[in-house]
């Protein structure tokens, strides 16, 4: 009630919140991250445009770690083709069919973990929907974001999609074997990245020839060394949804 004169009129109240609109997603992502760390799983979110070579990189990654258990979830609007390709390459995988959704969110990843033996994994790849816009703003609970950019996509791609590249802990310049056939200068791609990201980490590779795959392996190993083998985080008050 109006407290000024007691007239009985409703009062207009400003409620200050200053909170992220994606706070709900971020909470679920934190939950996923706690799970991954607790189980000693290195989770990587692999993003990039459709056809940038995400699945091919993962196929070529399958043979790089003979002593480790790899797994993946692979998202597409329709079809489970990518998950099947990864299975054939020797990476146990599950498809997430997003329907009309153009990105993964933390809840979709969380649901995909149910019934999937992810706790036994060492490396868990989340192959996001092919899209350089929407996936960038959703935290999934990953340790790091890897963005695949094929050399066929144009030197200025990072300038056109700054939000995505700004989120990249690592940029994989894929399809390097095609460079002799293209009018593309890798240095110009590196320059574009340096204008959207203060300290870009970039690896040039070819899943087809295997060039650069050792460096990619080295990057994963260095990241893995930062995730303690069995980090037992206290999950007191942890409520498991769904």
């Amino acid at each position: 009630m109006c407290t000024t004169c007691g007239c009985g009129d409703a009062e207009l109240v400003p409620v200050e919140l200053h909170e992220k609109i994606l706070a709900g997603n971020d909470r679920t992502a934190a939950h996923n991250r706690a799970h991954f760390r607790e189980a000693g799983v290195l989770a990587l979110n692999l993003m990039g445009s459709p056809g940038s070579g995400k699945t091919a990189v993962l196929e070529a990654t399958a043979g790089l770690f003979p002593g480790l258990a790899l797994g993946a979830v692979s998202a597409d609007l329709a079809t489970d083709h990518d998950a099947r390709r990864l299975e054939r390459a020797g990476i146990p995988s599950r498809a997430i069919t997003t329907g009309q959704a153009c990105h993964l969110d933390a809840e979709m990843v969380h649901r995909s973990l149910h019934g999937f033996p992810w706790q036994a994994l060492d490396l868990f790849f989340i192959e996001n929907v092919g899209n350089l816009v929407c996936p960038a703003i959703y935290d999934l609970g990953q340790e790091a974001n890897v963005v695949a950019l094929s050399v066929t996509e144009g030197e200025d791609k990072p300038l056109k999609y700054p939000v995505m590249f700004q989120k990249a802990d690592l940029v994989l310049l894929t399809k390097a074997d095609l460079l002799p056939h293209l009018d593309v200068e890798v240095d110009r791609i590196r320059d574009a990245l340096a204008r959207v990201l203060p300290e870009p980490q970039v690896l040039l590779l070819s899943a087809r020839t295997g060039a650069g795959m050792e460096a990619w392996k080295g990057w994963i190993e260095a990241r893995r060394a930062r995730v303690p083998a069995k980090l037992r985080l206290p999950l007191a008050g942890h409520v498991h949804r769904g």
């Binding site: 009062e11 207009l12 200050e16 919140l17 909170e19 992220k20 700004q166």
Partner: peptide, 27 residues
């Protein structure tokens, strides 16, 4: 995104990458 003077990396200004619900006016 490197300082032309000292070479250190750049930092993004606050809230430039955020989408925030700041406040609600309600009766």
């Amino acid at each position: 995104l490197r300082c032309a003077g000292c070479g250190a990396p750049g930092r993004l200004s606050e809230r430039a990458d955020a989408l925030l619900l700041e406040s609600i006016e309600m009766e």
